[in-house]
Design a protein around this nucleic acid. Sequence first.
DNA 1: GATGAATGAGGTTTCATTCAT
DNA 2: GATGAATGAAACCTCATTCAT
Lengths: 219, 219, 219, 219
Amino acid sequence: MIEKRYKEAFERASDERKEKILEVGIEEFSSKGYENANINVIAKNAGISIGLMYKYFATKEDLFITCIQRGIKILDDALDDIMKSDDKLLKKAEKLIRTTCIHSKRNANYIKLYNEIASERNGENAARLAREIEYSTSRKYVTSIAEALKNDDVRPDLDPRLFAFFLDNLITSLQFSYTCDYYRERFEIYTGVNIEEMDDEVIVTQLLKFIESAFTFEK
Amino acid sequence: MIEKRYKEAFERASDERKEKILEVGIEEFSSKGYENANINVIAKNAGISIGLMYKYFATKEDLFITCIQRGIKILDDALDDIMKSDDKLLKKAEKLIRTTCIHSKRNANYIKLYNEIASERNGENAARLAREIEYSTSRKYVTSIAEALKNDDVRPDLDPRLFAFFLDNLITSLQFSYTCDYYRERFEIYTGVNIEEMDDEVIVTQLLKFIESAFTFEK
Amino acid sequence: MIEKRYKEAFERASDERKEKILEVGIEEFSSKGYENANINVIAKNAGISIGLMYKYFATKEDLFITCIQRGIKILDDALDDIMKSDDKLLKKAEKLIRTTCIHSKRNANYIKLYNEIASERNGENAARLAREIEYSTSRKYVTSIAEALKNDDVRPDLDPRLFAFFLDNLITSLQFSYTCDYYRERFEIYTGVNIEEMDDEVIVTQLLKFIESAFTFEK
Amino acid sequence: MIEKRYKEAFERASDERKEKILEVGIEEFSSKGYENANINVIAKNAGISIGLMYKYFATKEDLFITCIQRGIKILDDALDDIMKSDDKLLKKAEKLIRTTCIHSKRNANYIKLYNEIASERNGENAARLAREIEYSTSRKYVTSIAEALKNDDVRPDLDPRLFAFFLDNLITSLQFSYTCDYYRERFEIYTGVNIEEMDDEVIVTQLLKFIESAFTFEK
DNA sequence: GATGAATGAGGTTTCATTCAT
DNA sequence: GATGAATGAAACCTCATTCAT
């Protein structure tokens, strides 16, 4: 599913070096954005020469994508833990929201990268990235909802794929609100409070309330 | 609230010309993104010299912001029509979703611009833009929900500001799904259908269902 | 001697307007330098349109030269008063130095313009300007010294033209030290004191001492 | 005292290249002035790409300053040879004047650069440059005069710092008269002779006469 | 494998000058 | 006489990428 965008030489590099390059790359791309990120600077900060960087990655874009793939893995692993459990859908949702709050603070840079991708304007790239990033997540959401549907845990008239989509929209928006300048300000405009100063539990409670009723409402 | 970012000379230009410049600018910025947009191209396509462009706007950024402000107004006016009515909250929501579907197709470029802004990484700019763009919208949402709360139209234990925030997240995500490459692909991954080929009414129905129960659930 | 560099239309303008244009021009040129001065800004600050400015002056350079000519006249008139008197050479020198100190503060902008000219790199222009500016002054100096020579007021073995040249070098350097950033700092480096805080009389006394002996030394 | 204004990459360049860049830069800056000098032209004439130029110098200004510093060193070294001798003040002055005449012809471009700096209008820059350029020279002058004062070689009532200042004014003006268009014409206006055609010895003799009596006059 | 010097196209911005009204 | 909108050449600077060592 995930197409590698690095050269063979990169695989042969030490784990420490691989780690360092991606870490520095994520930092640069997430803080400056793709266009303003400077690959020469990334090389310098990673402690390697620019020549070697091009032995590892064919283009700036490839480095960028590889950084993203690294971020995806982290986020995906966290989601896995939650979705693999036997909890009921609402319990999963609760865990999901709570984990999102915590993760967004801890892995702010990955989220920022994700925001960067979301504004990609090259249709081809955007599509490929979306498949790489969203496929695995979407499966987990849809499957969980479909299962809940089978178990009569949720209202029978919902479309599991669209509901998964709505759910992910809420989670994603929340992530951005924790990490991206624009969305943070937007959060404060809506709520009157800076998201960093708000108690996570208020968010968990309210968002869960929003979702819970969405899923379980019955006439 | 909205700070003007054009020079006086721009005000003096003919309406036709103002229109043309912003239209061309929006097209360029939304299709290429801020960094890759080329002011010389915008000037040429708008039929004016680059020198005159700089008589109208002090910097590329100012032109960009002015394009955005133009987009905001269009979207805001549409929202106004809906929110000023005497309809109940859910009726408003229904109109809102339906209008969003239609508008997103018609004014795709404005939405794309909005997506571009949302990835702004200069904290100061991001905050200013967020205030310009979100304030008015957020007031309308919050007020409508607060009123519904007073009239017992919605569950009494919801936080009107957070619920307004969640609601807008859903609407915004939907807009992006209609217009931005990444989000369009993502929509298809979730639903299995290209959003252009999906009947809007399915989206309206399902999203309304999601929202409706969120707002009105009662034990 | 002085070639006019303005168009006929400028002559026909009101005195008030002529005054204003040159005043504003001198301010702009002396504060920013020729290259960085902006003729559009000068027009605006003088309260006329740029189109009219070009009815008055054919080029930016012509405006500059006309501003300079205006400055020359002011400085030259002051010199005239001193040199036309019947005083002996040293008395004239004393008056000259004292007047220089006072004038340099009052007409700082004219001096700055003069400094700007002195770095002109177009040989043709430089020569023409030098003739316009220096000719009259040099005559006065040389004549005064030649007269003093005839009256045995000064040492007989001095070359009146070279001594006039040296004298003017000292006066000119002093003027710059009062008005131009670089020369002011240089003055402080040499003397340890900011020239604005130094008592003019110390300068007068010391420079006079320097000159006096130069002229009158005898074995 | 002298702050370096080039990047590390410049240090690593071959001496030949460093030489070439500064030489070409000095030529361009001294012939066209700072504003009209063109960095692309300098790069081309120095045989390197513009990109590499910017690897060596962060800005046009930095290249300019580095060219200046190069000129300073040359002039300062020459002064050093003279002032370090055990000669009496007047002997030093004689050597100084004679060397100035010779040097001004040989290193005309350095002197022109100096003239360019002297019209700097950014106060901060001007001050910094003055300190870099004048400090060392002024110490040498003042020290020599102060010593002469101690040895009763000069009149006791002179202020060594102001006299050093006056002396340098004369030398500096002479340098400009050899090298800068405006000052050359001015010299001819005063003396009736083009400075290139005048016998240096006349200048040496007369200027020495002017200075000598200034320093040694006694009642 | 590793280096980093070198390239050069390309974009933003300025401003003297023109000319239709 | 007066206006000011309009022009467009030209300059500084950036950075992805190459390649000789």
